[in-house]
Computed example of a mutant assay.
Amino acid sequence: MKLLFIGSRLYDDIDWYVKSKNIESVLTESNEEAINLDLPDQVFIVPRGMDGPKQVALMQNVDAIVPLIGIDPPLIDVAYMKEEVEEEYGIPVIAANVRAVELTSDKIKTKEFYESIGVVTPNYQILNSPDELTLDLPVVLKQGKGQGGKDIKVAKTIEEVQEYFKEFDQALCEEFIEGSEISIEVLGFNGEFAALPPIYKGETTLEGVHPLNKVKTGPCIVEGLDNNLVQHTAYKVAKNLGSDGIFEMDFMYSSKKDQLYAIEVNTRPNGTRYLTTATCGVNSLCELVNMAIGEFSLANISDKLEYHYSTEIPIGNYEGPAVKEPAKSFEVNDFVVHGPVGYQRVTARANSKEELEKLVEKLI
């Protein structure tokens, strides 16, 4: 079995798994100084875009293509390439299709999609000027496109709304939901969808603290919230998108209103994947490989499910005990270190809260 992987930044997360499956790995990358280029069997440096990877896939006669792209802008090009390569050459591309990317890469379209399938989302309006504001303050101001908290502002006063419009001509304006932030991964392939355990990402703040600066835990334990509701809602969203790959969804739960709100969907690998793996034993990136080699099924996911307590902590530069090789595998480790130097995070797991606390004390 020969697979083409697009993008090297995330490849070290799955290199150990690819080798364990005796898969011949081919990788394309547009940056010749990128990390992880020493890991695959073959590497091709290609221009930006999807034409280079497509040509390499055909030249190398690969069995499937697995894009490892963790940012939004290239996803639509990947989606168009997927539809072309699958239709004309019969090579599976394990990624979202054009419709799914178009609906999820624009926050306004995502809102409209939620409403069309009957999923509750915070009240919103499209503002072309601060004078049009009708929602009660505070509000959350966003741009239609963007990720990782970019161009998002929690405005507590009309003056802060006016300040936002000094930089932007339009804004998606949402009511501010006070409550718990939740993330969940859904895996989808050939019409089958598996919603993994939800992850708790902390409480909303008027200061708009970035998710990378918060301590996260798994599984999600929030008083009054039924995790089955989160999984059911996430499953409903993924099924209506009707595409392949990883879906990462963000929700808010308001205990005051006892209401779960859908916030956004990403059709790519995401920042909570280590915590999800630590919590339930299912690695979403490895499952992309399983989709490519015909080993993904709901039964296989069910057989892999484990139950652990886990946490993810930002530590800057890790200086604790060394991890075992393969360093990114929870199959041999009870903790994994990830992220660039200076912004590293430790994700750890244990069989009880008490054991987890002791492990964290040892690590940090």
Rank of each mutant, 00 (worst) to 15 (best):
V43C: 01
L39I: 08
V98W: 13
D51L: 12
V85H: 06
K54E: 06
E88R: 13
M50D: 09
L37F: 05
L58H: 00
A96K: 08
I91H: 13
V66W: 11
I91M: 12
D63G: 15
P73M: 01
P74L: 05
D72H: 04
K54S: 01
N97M: 12
I69V: 15
P67V: 07
V56Q: 02
D77F: 06
L37H: 03
E83L: 03
Q60H: 09
L39F: 06
I35V: 13
P73D: 06
Q42H: 14
D38M: 01
V85P: 00
G49F: 06
D38V: 02
M81C: 12
K82L: 07
Y80S: 00
A64C: 14
I76E: 08
D77C: 00
E87M: 10
I35Q: 12
R99C: 02
V93T: 15
V78S: 07
E83P: 02
K54V: 07
R99E: 14
N36R: 08
P73N: 01
L68V: 13
V46I: 07
G70V: 10
D51V: 14
A79Y: 04
I91C: 14
D72Q: 05
V101T: 09
L103M: 11
K54I: 09
Q60T: 10
E86C: 11
N36K: 09
M81V: 00
N36T: 07
P40Y: 01
I35K: 06
L58D: 02
I69K: 11
G52T: 04
L39Y: 06
A64Y: 10
V93A: 11
G90S: 15
R48H: 10
E83W: 04
V43P: 03
L39V: 01
I71T: 11
F44Y: 14
A100P: 10
V85I: 15
I94F: 13
L103N: 00
E102Y: 13
P73C: 02
A100N: 09
N97K: 14
P40S: 05
E102I: 11
D51E: 11
P47Q: 06
V78G: 03
F44D: 05
V101H: 04
A57S: 05
